[in-house]
Amino acid sequence: MSRALQEPAAEVRPLLSVSGLTKDHGGGHGCHDVAFELWPGEILGVVGESGAGKSTLLDCLGGFAAPDAGRADYQSRLFGPVEIFGLSEARRRRLARSEWGFVHQDARRGLRLSVSAGGNIGERLMAGGARHYGDLRARAGAWLERLELDPSRLDEAPRQFSGGMRQRLQIARNLVTEPRLLLMDEPTGGLDLSVQARLLDLLRGLVRDLGLSVVLVTHDLGVVRLLCDRMLVMERGRVVEEGLTDQVLEDPQHAHSQRLVASILPV
């Protein structure tokens, strides 16, 4: 099969390669000397207890915080290989609204609550130069459906949506430009269990269909088990263990990983 011959070449090159990433918030908080690679089509889970530095790591990658040290090399569709912390602001923001997505735990941070669902989804397209109202509307409607939201609610503002619906809208708003890299911070946090399950399942399908690569921060090992190919375990700002999800969950090496794994309820 020609596919079998092509694939390894694509696989040996990581989409994102982070090294020495350090952001000191003082008092032992932040992240220290974090290094990892993210491969195309891969979902990487970052787990740890609160204060372990997972969100700091994600904020640095998402441009919400400036790291003290370290680099992150990214294979851009637009610009080729780039080091994202050294990018000009113009380029970084251009990537952030086209090739990257950021899903906040609190959907209110990632949405415009007073703007209709359609306007929320269309914004990245408009930022990219889309100027045809009919097209924008059609594409926004299609994305609502893809996220299992009722397309007849296109003109409603997310204020009127439930928590789970808002989260799906936030994801639609990010995916409309078909990004390569999605950063997610506790995307199922604060949602009911049944709503979580639905969201996780949707994400699995979207990641496969769109060939997305994801860095997903969570403290929920159940989410990691369902969604992630590989995981990092963080403790006090450092990565203490890394491996395929089943490796870390079934054969945790580090004391902290063993404690985390021992604390999950049997499924």
């Binding site: 696989e11 639905r198 699995r204």
Partner: peptide, 26 residues
């Protein structure tokens, strides 16, 4: 490397465990 392990699992190596890993809703 992890990508190689994943490629081997995808195309070469099947595993039947005693228990089904349940995926909600699928």
């Amino acid at each position: 490397p992890p990508w190689l392990v994943r490629a081997v699992r995808r195309r070469t190596l099947g595993y039947v465990s005693q228990f089904l890993r349940l995926i909600p809703r699928v």
